[in-house]
Amino acid sequence: MSMLAELCVIESGAADPHTLDEYESETPRWCKGCGDHGVLAALQRVLRKNNLDPEDVVSVSGIGCSSRLPHYLNTYGFHGIHGRALPISTGVRLARPELPVVVIMGDGDCFSIGGNHWLHAIRYNIDAVVLVLDNEVYALTKMQVSPTTPDGWKTNTTPHGTYLQPMNPLSVVMGMTNVSFLAQTATWLPAHLDETIEKAWEHHGLSFVRILQRCPVFMPKAFGDGGLNFPVVFLEHEDGIPVHPLLLKRGATRAHNHRDINEAQRVAVSVDPAPMGLLYRNPDVPTYEEIRWNRQERPDHRTFVERLDALMDRYTVS
């Protein structure tokens, strides 16, 4: 669609701005104290702030506690199969590039079974907000080890403690070609969470956000008792994610140039203290949808039939 036509849509949009409850569907069934509630609320606030019509947003999820989110968000939602949210999202983006997509996955969903799709989605750089709610365990299926479960923790499939060091998804993301946005935040830092999701929404490209989250039922002690005792450092930059003064009692700030890929890679590798904020942003990486759709236009029906006829000539034996 031409730029002018798009503008007309945006401009005529706001007859009445939407209220928060217009983005609510049913009451969430997550456990009390689960960080998923915060993410849902943050998402709803972002949608309201940008005054998006609920029917124009698509949320896609895999399988897991966090993947129930589309049930509770009043948009078009697709609650798919374990590990496969990203290919489905790619299909939605390719078919309807005008609809914003938010992808919600868990750590097992994205890093384990969905690993292959995760790696390639970064390279495709589809324009979508990708939130991974990382509680470092498989909670829905009742406590199995996940790729990010900390060293030595006991789960139902590792009753004597985990065998391997947890993976660092941040360094994996920074290592993939075409990475355009990486941020990390936590559900126990609600102001930071809101700002991070807002920033991710603004970015044109794959906005990968890892949201640390403590499962109150299966991992109550994780992340230093839910963030109380969890060393973090807030990355600061003029264009980065703003650090509210109240957050400073959780951790110090550090100046960070998120436009420098080498600096971002260095920060991504560090895990203690955990870097919170915008690690990397490059607004100039083209998205896969642009690359594919910019190559061609849809011919009108007459031209379509003419071209098909000419094509058929190639195979005609007179």
Partner: peptide, 24 residues
């Protein structure tokens, strides 16, 4: 011209609501 375009785009997306938009 832009008014006509806006109205048309609203119609295309089924978002033209007589009660509100006629006045606008």
């Amino acid at each position: 011209v832009l008014r006509a375009l806006r109205i048309a785009q609203l119609e295309i997306r089924s978002k033209y609501v007589s009660e509100t938009h006629d006045a606008v």
